[in-house]
Amino acid sequence: METVNFSVNGREVTVDADGDTPLLDILRNRLGLRGAKFGCGLEQCGCCMVLVDGRPEKSCGKALATVRGRQVLTIEGLGTVDHPHPLQQAFLDEQAGQCGYCLPGILISAKALLDRNPDPTRRQIAEALDENICRCGSHHRILRAVALAARRMRDQGQAA
């Protein structure tokens, strides 16, 4: 058991837990942030994707101790119904999703992409999402939605 301090969605948190506990479990069960999902537990599907210091990381395989002092962003920190992130708005506008279980992870991966590349090509978007599985087959809508968000953000001179 150890004490780990880090920040989640801009809020400082302190967690007492085994350092090798998966970050995903801490987020979901200790911090009540259930937006990141368990998909495979093998870092293969991307449902549990979060940003750690701005980099996309699969939280199912990320030990709690490794985020000590770092900044974690989950889907709950991306935007809200009242203040949606342009990516979230674009996913709604493009109706990009079916079962939707993969979407929080996909939105996080897309956010990481737009942070480093505000004007990605379709192929670059597809490659950035290659770590995320969607089994329902909403890929085209998702690719369109990310491109739409990027365009809107560029038009508004907005950072991701």
């Binding site: 979901r28 942030l33 259930r34 937006g35 990141a36 999902k37 368990f38 989950t74 889907i75 709950e76 991306l78 935007g79 809200t80 119904v81 949606p84 979230q88 996913f91 709604l92 109706q95 999703g97 939707g100 279980y101 979407l103 929080p104 939105l107």
Partner: peptide, 19 residues
Amino acid sequence: APRIDLAGKVFGEPVFVHD
């Protein structure tokens, strides 16, 4: 018509039985 279940999913709300 837009999907009534989609917003909860893109905002990461706990809409699944897993949640």
